[in-house]
Design a protein around this nucleic acid. Sequence first.
DNA 1: GGTACAGTTCACCAAATGGTTAACAGTTTG
DNA 2: CAAACTGTTAACCATTTGGTGAACTGTACC
Lengths: 103, 103
Amino acid sequence: MVNSLFRALSHPIRREIVERLAAGPATVGEVSGDFAVSKPAISKHLKVLEESGVLSRVIDGRTHVLSLETEALAEATEWMVRQRAIWTRLFDVVEDHLREEQG
Amino acid sequence: MVNSLFRALSHPIRREIVERLAAGPATVGEVSGDFAVSKPAISKHLKVLEESGVLSRVIDGRTHVLSLETEALAEATEWMVRQRAIWTRLFDVVEDHLREEQG
DNA sequence: GGTACAGTTCACCAAATGGTTAACAGTTTG
DNA sequence: CAAACTGTTAACCATTTGGTGAACTGTACC
């Protein structure tokens, strides 16, 4: 759902977590160490990201290894790109119109 | 700021407003008519979108005409596309690795 | 078995969010 | 000028969000 995806990306810490995981999988502790908030806070952010499908976790013993789920993020990207395509096309129409008027 | 941009796009009504305005400028009343919430609620959504730079308004008499601000939205799109590029590259590396192992 | 470790869940809190109705400000029009 | 119209602001409310410290669950290790 594109809905929960945008929600998930609306918090700066969650976007930073995404950027962190874009460099490769990491454990909860590693991710947590990068931020000035408590572990429970990070745990909640991770839950939001997981429920929206942005990341997945594999439990290995007592550590949880987090990885990005690229397919889910592609959905939100597509919305953005599709919107941009519409705006761009519209913008071109306006530009053409102006050019015609001046020419 | 990419921060307020994602925040602005995190609410379904606000994304629908963006989609509506992608088809061309509209007044507050026209936009408001499309949704099952009160006008003050829409007014607040419009304020969020305006403050994040997603749209601009021109006051014409007693009506406000709203237009999309494509540059602002491009910022958020770029973040998404940049992220996707990183994931894709990473994914390719993994694929290459698998191909190598099998070959 | 006992202790350290990784991580989540619980109980709580303050602030932000999203909605409402009522009142307001400015513009148009009879 | 008065009434109608467009839109915002104000005051209020319930819910969600994002954070905390403390307690808990499960794994690793001596």
